[in-house]
Lab assay of single mutants.
Amino acid sequence: KYLVLALYDYQEKSPREVTMKKGDILTLLNSTNKDWWKVEVNGRQGFVPAAYVKYL
């Protein structure tokens, strides 16, 4: 498993997404889509914009 760092705040806009705050450390679950990565944060799984996170 990889960890990624939230570069920006992101507010979920659909039930498939998750909210994150700048500085959050997220567990990367799937990065096959170049635009949306599946992550786990605070016990929830969902998608965030790939451009908003970077590998640690």
Rank of each mutant, 00 (worst) to 15 (best):
V41G: 10
V53F: 04
N42P: 06
L5T: 10
V18S: 02
R44K: 13
V39H: 00
V4Y: 12
N30M: 08
K1F: 11
L29C: 06
S31V: 10
L7H: 04
Y8V: 12
K34D: 10
E17F: 06
Y10H: 05
G46L: 04
T32H: 12
Q11K: 12
K22M: 08
G46T: 02
K22N: 04
A50N: 03
T19F: 04
L5I: 15
G23V: 01
G43M: 06
K38P: 01
V18Y: 04
R44M: 09
K13C: 09
K1I: 14
E17A: 06
K1E: 11
P15F: 10
D24W: 10
K34L: 10
G46Y: 02
K22Q: 12
V4W: 08
L3E: 08
T27F: 13
Y8R: 15
V39E: 00
T32A: 12
L7Y: 05
A6F: 02
T32C: 11
S31A: 14
P15N: 11
V4P: 01
S31K: 14
K34S: 13
W36F: 07
L26F: 06
G46Q: 02
P15R: 07
R16D: 13
W37V: 11
A6M: 02
Y52W: 06
P15Y: 08
G43A: 05
W36S: 03
L29P: 00
G23M: 03
Y55S: 12
L3R: 11
Y10D: 00
V39A: 01
I25K: 06
F47S: 04
S31E: 11
R16F: 15
R44I: 09
A51T: 13
V53D: 00
Y10P: 01
A51G: 13
N33D: 15
N33R: 10
L5F: 10
F47E: 05
N30F: 06
W36G: 01
G23L: 02
G43H: 07
K38H: 12
A51F: 09
M20P: 00
S31F: 11
T27E: 12
V18W: 05
A6W: 03
V41I: 15
R44Q: 09
N42V: 05
K13N: 11
Y8I: 11
Y8L: 12
Q45C: 09
L28W: 02
A6V: 10
N33L: 09
V39K: 01
K1V: 12
N33F: 07
K1C: 10
P49V: 03
K54R: 12
L3Q: 11
V39D: 00
L26N: 00
A6N: 01
K1S: 12
K13Y: 04
Y52V: 05
K38C: 09
K38V: 14
Y2W: 13
E17L: 05
Y52Q: 05
P49D: 01
Q45N: 08
V48A: 03
E40M: 09
K54A: 15
N33I: 05
K22L: 05
V48L: 03
I25F: 06
V48M: 01
V53M: 05
E40N: 06
S14R: 09
E12R: 12
Y55M: 15
K22F: 06
G46F: 04
L5Q: 14
R16A: 13
N30V: 09
L29V: 13
M20A: 02
V48S: 00
L7S: 04
T32L: 10
L26W: 02
K21I: 08
R44P: 01
V53A: 03
K34E: 11
E40P: 00
M20V: 10
F47Q: 04
L5H: 05
E17G: 13
Y2I: 15
T32S: 15
E12S: 15
Y8H: 13
N30P: 03
D35T: 13
L7Q: 05
T32R: 12
D35H: 15
V18N: 04
Y52E: 02
T19L: 03
R16T: 15
V53S: 00
K54T: 14
F47W: 13
S14V: 04
P15S: 12
K1L: 12
V53T: 04
D24P: 00
D35R: 11
Q45T: 14
Y10R: 02
F47V: 07
D35I: 15
V39P: 00
G23E: 02
L7F: 04
K13D: 07
D24G: 03
V53K: 00
T32K: 14
Y2E: 14
V18E: 01
A51E: 12
V41N: 13
N42G: 13
A51Q: 12
K38Y: 15
D9R: 03
A6Y: 03
N30T: 08
V53Q: 00
T27A: 11
P49S: 02
K22H: 07
D9S: 08
W36P: 00
L29I: 15
A50F: 02
L3C: 09
D24R: 02
Q45M: 10
K13A: 12
Q11L: 13
M20K: 00
D9I: 02
F47L: 08
S14T: 14
E12K: 13
Q45G: 08
D9Y: 04
A50P: 05
K38D: 04
I25N: 03
Y10A: 00
S14Q: 08
R44S: 07
E17D: 06
T32F: 09
S31I: 10
S14I: 05
V18K: 01
E17I: 03
G46E: 01
Y55V: 15
M20Q: 02
V48R: 00
S14A: 09
W37I: 08
V41Q: 11
R16G: 15
G46K: 02
Y10V: 01
T32M: 12
L29Q: 04
A6K: 02
R44Y: 06
V41S: 13
L26P: 01
Y2R: 14
T27Y: 12
T19G: 10
R44W: 04
K13L: 09
D24I: 03
V4N: 01
T32W: 11
D9M: 03
A51V: 11
L29G: 02
F47M: 09
E40D: 09
W37Q: 01
E40Q: 09
V18G: 02
L28K: 01
V53C: 11
V41W: 08
T27N: 11
G23C: 06
M20E: 00
K38W: 15
V4H: 04
K34I: 10
L26E: 01
G43K: 06
Y8W: 11
Y55L: 15
P15D: 14
Y8C: 11
Y8E: 14
S14F: 06
P49T: 01
V41E: 03
E40W: 07
G23Y: 05
V39W: 00
P15A: 12
M20F: 12
G43W: 03
N42S: 11
L56T: 09
Y52A: 12
F47K: 03
K38R: 10
P49F: 02
F47N: 04
K54S: 12
K34V: 11
A50C: 06
L3T: 10
V48C: 04
R16H: 15
L28V: 10
N33M: 09
L28E: 00
K34Q: 11
V18Q: 03
Q45E: 14
L56I: 13
L3N: 08
V18I: 15
L3H: 11
K38N: 07
M20C: 06
F47P: 00
L26V: 08
L28F: 04
A51Y: 10
E40S: 10
Y52H: 07
S14L: 10
Y10C: 02
P49K: 03
M20L: 09
R16Y: 14
W36I: 03
L3K: 12
K54Q: 14
N42A: 10
L28T: 02
Q45V: 15
K21C: 08
E40H: 05
Q45S: 11
G43F: 06
W36T: 02
V48K: 00
K34N: 12
W37K: 02
W36L: 04
K1H: 14
F47D: 04
V4Q: 01
Y8D: 09
N33W: 07
E17K: 04
A51M: 11
K13P: 04
V18C: 08
N42C: 08
D9K: 02
T27V: 15
Y55N: 09
